[in-house]
Design a protein around this nucleic acid. Structure first.
Lengths: 195, 195
DNA sequence: CTGAATTTAGTACTAGGTATTAGGATGTGG
DNA sequence: CCACATCCTAATACCTAGTACTAAATTCAG
């Protein structure tokens, strides 16, 4: 038997969520209705046509593809001194069950900022000591401030503190290693203490 | 002046790499040639039409969207005991300049595994102490082993060691907090020590 | 100047639609 | 049972962004 309009539209919505690559013809076959019916349904549900849906996905892809040199957006940078980056917590950063950000995203913001403020060809993290002080939630704007607090020839200590509206949510100390990489950039691991 | 065929095709390739959303008409205007010329160029360069390009990108997007409950693939799991996950280092995990994996991806693998092995409604990371022992490179298979080494009512210590072919590349100790979340799942932060 | 390479024009056809009009089927209240 | 509404389908014209193909015009190089 054919589904009622309501059920069909409900199902249609879910089907397209699961597989946005279905065209109207596929859908018409699936629900045993005419293409026109499917089109009316899409109208009523406000679902754009296949090509628009695909285009939309591809556009997000552009953003997702960006090799995320730094996680978050750098808003201040004093090379070899300090830097600030901002990360807005989106759906993809949180546990779906409770809307709390996964720790590694805060870590990633801090870690990549620590890398970014150091002026060298190659910068790697050797170790880190971190604390997640308060939970961060969907929609929060995390402002990470990084500062170099100690440096020797190629070893640096960077402290990062991340706040959401003046409240500290994360603190970490990163030991970073830098190499000028003069002529040996692509070579194999020179020793230890890298990532 | 108009570019030579060779130069135009070179430039075309780069332009589409930078912005795959350009259609033939846009390109024809850009290079002051006819649409047909652009189409010949695409043929010769083996560049598919706009819609195919977009479709391709969107398909990758599907994979990228997967909410990555655990970073890496879990291959063994003894709930409330231990677990193992494997992460193959891909292009998107490494610094393009040297092919070395960014630290936060190793951290993410370890952290999400630490979350996964704990049997509770809500599990958060309170703090962590980590060391990046050796650099990990493009193509490496990182095998992370996590073990709960200490537990009290809602606080657990998890140790994670990640190896690439028997060689330890990462070690971390994570202090995790669990909540059974009985009836208060969606509520605001109950206290501190969360992420 | 000639011949090849290059560019352009034009036609027929395609997928996957939009937008619109109109007609048929089905159901429901009076 | 009729009337009206809802729902579904059909048909047409049009759109974009192409492919595939033929043919003519232009440009360049020897």
């Amino acid at each position: 038997m054919r589904l009622s309009k309501k059920l069909r539209q409900q199902s249609l919505k879910e089907a397209l969520q699961a597989d946005p690559f279905l065209n109207d013809e596929d859908l018409a076959r699936r629900y045993n209705v005419s293409i026109q019916t499917i089109r009316l349904d899409r109208m009523e549900l406000g679902i754009p046509e296949l090509r628009e849906r695909i285009r939309h996905m591809a556009q997000q892809q552009v953003r997702a593809l960006q090799p995320e040199e730094v996680i978050g957006r750098v808003i201040e940078l004093n090379l070899d001194e300090s830097g600030i980056s901002v990360l807005k917590i989106q759906k993809e950063h949180v546990f779906s069950r409770n809307g709390i950000a996964r720790g590694h995203h805060l870590f990633a913001q801090a870690n990549s900022l620590a890398v970014a403020i150091i002026d060298a060809k190659v910068v790697l993290t050797a170790s880190a000591n971190i604390r997640f002080i308060r939970s961060v939630r969907l929609g929060d704007e995390c402002v990470a401030k990084a500062k170099i607090v100690q440096r020797s020839s190629h070893r640096l200590r960077v402290e990062v503190e991340t706040c959401v509206e003046e409240e500290t949510v994360f603190r970490g100390t990163f030991i970073m290693v830098r190499y000028e990489g003069d002529g040996e950039e692509g070579k194999e691991k020179p020793d230890a203490d890298r990532v």
